[in-house]
Design a protein around this nucleic acid. Structure first.
Lengths: 338, 338
DNA sequence: TGGCGCCGTCGAAGCGCTTCGACGATGAGC
DNA sequence: GCTCATCGTCGAAGCGCTTCGACGGCGCCA
């Protein structure tokens, strides 16, 4: 492997000049620059990442902490992850992949050993134990999610409260009065997963504001769980005319169960999903949905990390406004006249 | 951040002694070792990864290249990825996440700049363009998959040919004579994706060996694709009594379509799936399946990388034998008497 | 009791890069 | 024509660690 010294020798300049050509931190004459670049190309020189990190205390690596539990929706996680990687590359950074199960120790390990410049943390819980650890690190961190007390840590996410409100507003506008929320699995709530709670809150508040009769119900994403959930909803909220489904894995089964029960969507019952765009589009019926813009959120997380790294100002909490797209699964409720 | 010098001073020894305590490369007396360890703990010392990489030319980082296309099965990819990360941690390594779309350039970038010690590459194609690049790197690489000509590169995977044979053998043993393969989407074949082709090959060979009447059909994983696929199968292989499904995303829909058509599984038609265990178990009916042991394969990939790194011998191509587990979706075909 | 080998430790070099201060050359200002 | 910035480049220090050769002290054997 060629070193910066080899390049310098080949170009007839000093190593520092090569470095300045590379970093652009000092003016270099056009002629010199070209000779250096030619030498770099010819020798196939790539600066040694470790040496660079040592000298500059920058690694150009971001840590990304992903959950590996399978009760969260895997494809969505993957969408976030690839969005983060893609955005990182745009900013000339790479991504070190950590799993949530290493917990606090993993964060400290990579931070203390200076493997990364910043950390992006997914699957944040209400009182996430990792927060205090993150606050003591010298590297900045960005959460994808919003804990109860972010205090000093940057957070980005979809505004799930607003998303719930948006879904209800849409249904209310169509004339629905009785709406049930099919939520994530009980385990997700039990963990205090941030987005689930915020959606629930938004749902409850909007329900009151709009004067709707609503109920909420977690849902295990298997056939039995879905059946039980729908049965409970029918029992507790008879005459329900619309469902808000915030559980992608259950989504398809919910639709199937409705069909099996002979309830047509949207003629007999409307469905609004909270999920990524492509999921909504790939259902048997294109669903009216509020997007989970994983790509935007991931990109924003990286962007925020970059701003933090070069000392630009940021908004500490950034919640993206939801977008509801009306497709084929929502309509006014059937009237007695129908 | 404390440095090794701080630790040395605190423990009253030289920096090299601290280093030897850390690495165990030279004998250190118990007393000294304890003092050093105490100092390390007290100061919260973590060696600087860059400095270490520079001095030792080892990064303790593995590159993992994942596909981000969505026509491959995302949850399976995720299983491989988490298996690799988990296994890496056991060997005291971290994982740098690359996406396949950076192609050859990405591999060369991380290798030439000495960011990683070895590379693990997923989603390998028949004539993968990345192979020649990999061969020129000074770092070893391990493929998850098996290209046409691996020549010198370590490969690990499930033995998909044997998996196909296993599925057919099981069905033949039950007395089935007409069996159709519901394969991955056409795009997967078109790319020359290694596992899809190997499965197809194994299927065809085993079919001949066992003297079965079979056919194969790719399947787009959406409602329409599944319907079309099943219709084609019925048209081209009338009286088919069993299906081998090598397409997880279509799996659920296949079952649904069969049910809709009033064909009971396994009474009217048997189904053998090729998929991870948990997928087979989470279907409405527990499926007879050949496991895709993502966890084992990922672990083996890491293990192989480690052996390569410390010069132990390896088998260049390692294909894990398939395991078929009989569950509720396979049975002897209905006879005329039924 | 003297010599030899081994154990445990030290010191220094060096990994490849960045960065800071310095310095010659050039051009502008008076 | 002389001073003073400015531009472009250089040299050297230093980032924090590993590793190699060296060396003192000890136990062992003769």
């Amino acid at each position: 492997m060629a070193t910066i010294n080899d390049v310098a020798r080949a170009a007839g300049v000093s190593p520092s000049t090569v470095s300045y050509v590379l970093s652009g931190r000092r003016p270099i004459s056009a002629g010199t620059r070209e000779r250096v670049q030619a030498a770099i190309a010819e020798l196939g020189f790539h600066p040694h990442a470790g040496a660079r990190a040592l000298a500059s205390s920058k690694t150009n690596v971001l840590a990304l902490v992903v959950p590996l539990r399978t009760d969260v929706n895997v494809p969505v996680i993957m969408q976030f992850a690839t969005a983060v990687v893609t955005a990182s590359r745009v900013h000339n950074h790479d991504v070190l992949l950590l799993t949530k199960d290493e917990g606090t120790a993993g964060l400290e390990r990579v931070a203390h050993s200076t493997m990364v410049d910043a950390l992006i943390v997914m699957d944040v819980e209400r009182d996430d134990v990792r927060l205090t650890a993150l606050r003591t690190l010298k590297q900045p961190s960005v959460l994808i999610g919003l804990p109860e007390d972010p205090a000093g840590i940057a957070c980005v996410d979809l505004d799930f409260e607003a998303a719930a409100a948006e879904a209800l507003r849409h249904l209310a506008w169509h004339g629905h009065r009785r709406v049930a929320l099919v939520g994530p699995s009980p385990a997700v709530y039990k963990r205090g997963t941030s987005y689930a709670e915020r959606f629930l809150t938004g749902f409850t508040i909007a329900s009151a504001t709009l004067g709707l009769e609503t109920m909420t119900h977690p849902c295990e994403p298997d056939r039995e769980g879905v059946r039980a959930c729908l049965a409970d909803i029918d029992a507790q909220l008879p005459g329900v005319t619309a469902l808000v489904v915030h559980n992608e894995e259950a989504l398809r089964m919910v639709l199937e169960e409705l069909q099996t029960a002979g309830r047509r969507v949207p003629a007999d019952i409307s469905v609004v999903a909270i999920c990524p765009r492509d999921v909504a589009l790939n259902m048997p019926l294109p669903l009216t949905s509020v997007d989970i813009p994983a790509h935007d959120v991931g990109g924003l997380a990286v962007e925020t990390a970059m701003r933090l790294l070069d000392g630009r100002s940021i908004e500490l909490v950034r919640l993206l406004p939801p977008t509801l797209v009306e497709r084929k699964s929502s309509a006014p409720p059937a009237t007695a006249a129908d």
